[in-house]
Design a protein around this nucleic acid. Sequence first.
DNA 1: GCGAAGTGTTACCGTCGGTAACGTCTGCGG
DNA 2: CCGCAGACGTTACCGACGGTAACACTTCGC
Lengths: 219, 219
Amino acid sequence: MTATARPGREAARAARRAELLDAADRAIRRDGPEVSMETLAAEAGITKPVLYRHFTDRGGLLDAVAERHARRLTDELRTALSEQRHPRERIRSVMATYLTFLERDPNLHRFVTRVAPSERPGARSAIDDALTVVCDQVVAAVARELTGARLDPGPATTWGIGMVGMVQLVGDRWIDTHDVTREVLVERLTDLIWNGFRGIVVSAPRARGDLRGPAGPVS
Amino acid sequence: MTATARPGREAARAARRAELLDAADRAIRRDGPEVSMETLAAEAGITKPVLYRHFTDRGGLLDAVAERHARRLTDELRTALSEQRHPRERIRSVMATYLTFLERDPNLHRFVTRVAPSERPGARSAIDDALTVVCDQVVAAVARELTGARLDPGPATTWGIGMVGMVQLVGDRWIDTHDVTREVLVERLTDLIWNGFRGIVVSAPRARGDLRGPAGPVS
DNA sequence: GCGAAGTGTTACCGTCGGTAACGTCTGCGG
DNA sequence: CCGCAGACGTTACCGACGGTAACACTTCGC
C-alpha cells in the first residue's frame, strides 16, 4: 500500500495468505466447521476464486487453518515436555497444556480433531501430521524414560500413542460435561499414567544394561 | 385409521431394510466411506428414492450401517468384560476384542470412527452413542474395581474413558503401520493399564519417587 | 373392478466445490 | 506517454451430489 518499498512479492503473498487464514478462522469459529467456501471468502471480503488462488482446494484451506493451531499446540507441548525435570511433573504439565488448549476454544478443537482430517479423503492432512508430531514427542520422552530405567524401549511407541489417545478422548468428553475442574482432571490422568509407569518400572526385571534383544533406541 | 396392520408387513420392511444395509455395507467396504448415494443405491440394485424411503437421509443410512457394527462390537466387549474373572485378564480380553474387530475390517473402522460421526453436524450419531456405551461399560468395570479395593470411585469415569481413548488411537495408528503383532500390542496395552491400576491400588496414599532413582519396591 | 399401499422409476431442484473467462489497477521498460 | 506483464478481483458457469416430486406397476382386501 503505502511506501513499503518492495516488500517482496513473495512476502506480500504470504501476508495476504495469513489474512485469509485469519478470516477463515473467524468464520469457522462463528459458523462451525461446515462453512461454505462462499462464506469463507465473504468473511475475507473477497470471492471464491481468490481463495482458490492461494489454496489448492477446500481441504487445503481447512488444513492450513488447522495447521496453525496445531503448530501452536505442538510448540506449547514441546516446551512443556522440555521444561519440567521431574517425570511426574512432565506428565502433568503436558496434560494441563493440552486441556488448556482444549478449553480455550472447544469448537476449534472439534474442527481440528474431527472435521479437518476427514475432509481430505486420502491425503495426509497437516492434522494427522500434527498428531503424529505430538505422538512422536511423547513417544520419544517415554523412550528416554525407559532407557533411563534400563528397560526395553520397544513398547514406548505403544505407550506414548496410548497416552495421547487417552488425553484426547477424555478431553473430548470433558468439553461437553465439564463435570470436574481441569485441575482435577489433570490430576487423575497424571495419576493413572504415572502409576502405570512406576508399576512397570518397579515390577520389571531390572538387569543393568539388559535391553531385550538387539532392539536399538526407538526411532 | 390405518387398520391395515399386516403382521408380515412390518417384518418384511425390516428385512428389506437389512438387505439395503448389507448392500451399503458392501459398497462402503469396496469404495470407501465417501460413496455417493447413487452408488449405494446401485449396489442394492435400486435407485435413490427407495433408499430415502427407508432412511431419512444420508446421515441416517450411514448411521444405521455404523450402528450394526457398533452393536456387534459392544456386545463382544460386554461378554469380554463379563467373562473374565481376573481383572488383568479382563483388561487383556477387552483389548484383544477391540483390536480383533479393528483388524477384521480396517476401512470399516475408519468409517465408523471418523466419517460417520462427522457426517451429521449437530445430531448425536449412533456411533457417539456406541462409544458412550463402550465408555460406560469400561467406566462401570473400573468403578467396581475401585470400590472393591476400597478406593474412591470418583476418578473411574476419567480412567475408563481414558482407557478407551488409549486403545482407540493406538489401534488407529496400528492399522497403518502394523509394526507389531496384535498379541504384542495387547500385551503392552494391558501392561500399561494393569500396572497403572496396581500402582494406584497399592499406593493409595501416593508416594512420590523419581523414576530413575531407586524406586522403592512396591507389591 | 377398485382404491390403498408398497415398490420402483425418471426427471428435476438447490447447494456447493471448483474453474474459465473477463475486467482492473499497478509498475515497469521502450 | 504508451503498452504490456501480471497480480487482484469479479461474474458466470460446470459437474457432482444430496434430496424430492411426480408418476407407473404390482399386490391385496373389499
